[in-house]
Design a protein around this nucleic acid. Structure first.
Lengths: 100, 100
DNA sequence: TTATATTTGCCAATATTTGACAAGTCAATA
DNA sequence: TATTGACTTGTCAAATATTGGCAAATATAA
């Protein structure tokens, strides 16, 4: 639970008036799995994000951002040093980028 | 490779003039494993961080922060949306904190 | 060469995540 | 209250990923 990505794709799906039963097969899974994904109990595969974005007529970048944010959140939730760790990580990312 | 945590504990170990062979048994592992951890090829278990901090006479919080930063980095490295995702995640963390 | 420290490669053991299915809840409505 | 449709939940084997342990390789110094 507590999944930004899951909440977002549920909202988008409902906005498109689509049922789980309609969307799930397009992602080659059953409704139970997609239901769990929307509730944050399972992870959508990274490479399926663009596919789902198209189905839901949404921005792939937006969904990818939320999906990544969920992964990060899973690492640091309940950590008292979460913010410090994020700062260090952010620095590393931007340094790596600069080197390219 | 590319592990802040690993680099740091190697530096600390060398500063204490300790060999892998001396430290590894205190963590109940062999030198090969600890070597890989220092090179970022394996992860130290989260619960072993305080133990290692004591051995190296270092700050447990500092090591924990670097360890967490490595986990975050593993998620977002190579992601063009890394920074956006970090911002979203950071917001979630601080909202969760506030609710407590 | 020998000795010591570290590294690397391999693979079985262990742990984690996923896929698939069945059974369950819930709400609407006949 | 029985039925239907949408969604949810639980279970568990299968698929994946990670780790532990060992042996061999490398490196450096004497």
């Amino acid at each position: 639970m507590n999944s930004q990505f899951g909440e977002r794709i549920r909202t988008l799906r409902e906005k498109q008036n689509l049922y789980l039963r309609q969307v799930a097969p397009l992602l080659e899974m059953d409704t139970a799995q997609l239901s769990k994904i929307e509730k944050g109990l399972r992870q959508l595969k990274r490479e399926q994000i663009p596919i789902l974005a198209e189905i839901l007529k949404a921005s792939s970048d937006e969904l990818m951002t939320l999906w990544l944010a969920d992964q990060i959140y899973a690492v640091v939730k309940d950590e008292k040093l979460a913010n410090e760790a994020m700062q260090v990580a952010e620095k590393n990312i931007n340094q790596t980028k600069r080197k390219k």
